[in-house]
Every structure is written in structure tokens, then in C-alpha cells.
Amino acid sequence: MSRYFVGIFIAFLSFSMIPEMMNVGQFGFWISIPVVALIGWIYVAMELVGDYSENPFSGMANDIPMLSLCRVIEIDLKEILGETDLLSAIEAKRGVLM
């Protein structure tokens, strides 16, 4: 639903910016086009970031590295119990820790 609201907002933003930009001068109409495009791009980018960050456990590059966290917890618990055959920590592959 938020995508629809962002689209409606951008559509109405263009109608509200034109009269305000006409007060700037005779080129105000043409200036309103890139201004509305910039503001619309910002809102669409915020929508995409919000959609991406809704699920932090999906296993993508910027998500929480659950496998690595679980391995560290397992190693710590084995150290507390005094076991000697410890697993190695998960290494990052191409700068990404999974």
C-alpha cells in the first residue's frame, strides 16, 4: 500500500509545485520538473530501503549474518564446557559475512 501512497503523493506533488515555482519567474514551470523528479526519487528510494530492511534475515549481503553468529555462540559454549575440538569461525567471502 505504501507504494501506492508514494505514487499518489508524487502525482499530487507535481500539481502543487507548478504554481509555487511560477512565482520564481518565467522559467518556474521548467524548474518544477527536475525539482519534482528529485523529490519523487527521494521518496521512491526511501520506499525501496524500507522494503529491503523489512526482512533482515533473508541471507542477503547486508542482512544479519546468522550463520556466523550461531557459530560464534557454539564456539563460546564449547569453550565454557571445556571441550577441545572447537570449530573454526566462519570467514568472510569477498567481504561478506554470512
Rank of each mutant, 00 (worst) to 15 (best):
N23M: 10
L97V: 05
V49T: 13
A37F: 10
V49M: 14
W30N: 12
M98V: 05
L13E: 02
N62T: 02
S2Y: 04
V44W: 08
E47T: 03
F27K: 05
A61Q: 09
P65G: 01
A61N: 06
I33N: 02
F12H: 03
M17K: 00
M60P: 00
K78S: 09
L67V: 13
Y43E: 04
G50Y: 05
P65W: 02
W30G: 12
V72L: 08
I42A: 08
L87T: 04
W41M: 14
G7Q: 08
F9R: 13
M1C: 09
A45E: 14
E79R: 15
M60L: 12
P19T: 14
M22P: 01
F5A: 07
M66Q: 11
L69M: 12
W41L: 14
G59L: 09
F57P: 01
D76R: 15
R94N: 14
A89T: 02
I75R: 06
G7E: 12
S53R: 09
F12V: 06
G82C: 11
Y43M: 03
W30P: 00
I39W: 02
M98S: 13
F29H: 10
S58Y: 07
M1F: 09
M66R: 14
S68D: 10
N23T: 14
L48F: 02
I75S: 03
A45Q: 03
I39S: 08
V36E: 01
R71G: 00
G59I: 05
I18H: 00
I31Q: 05
A11C: 10
S58T: 07
V49I: 15
S2C: 09
R71C: 02
I31D: 13
L38C: 15
P56D: 08
A11S: 08
S14L: 04
Q26R: 14
V49F: 10
L86D: 07
M1R: 12
S68M: 10
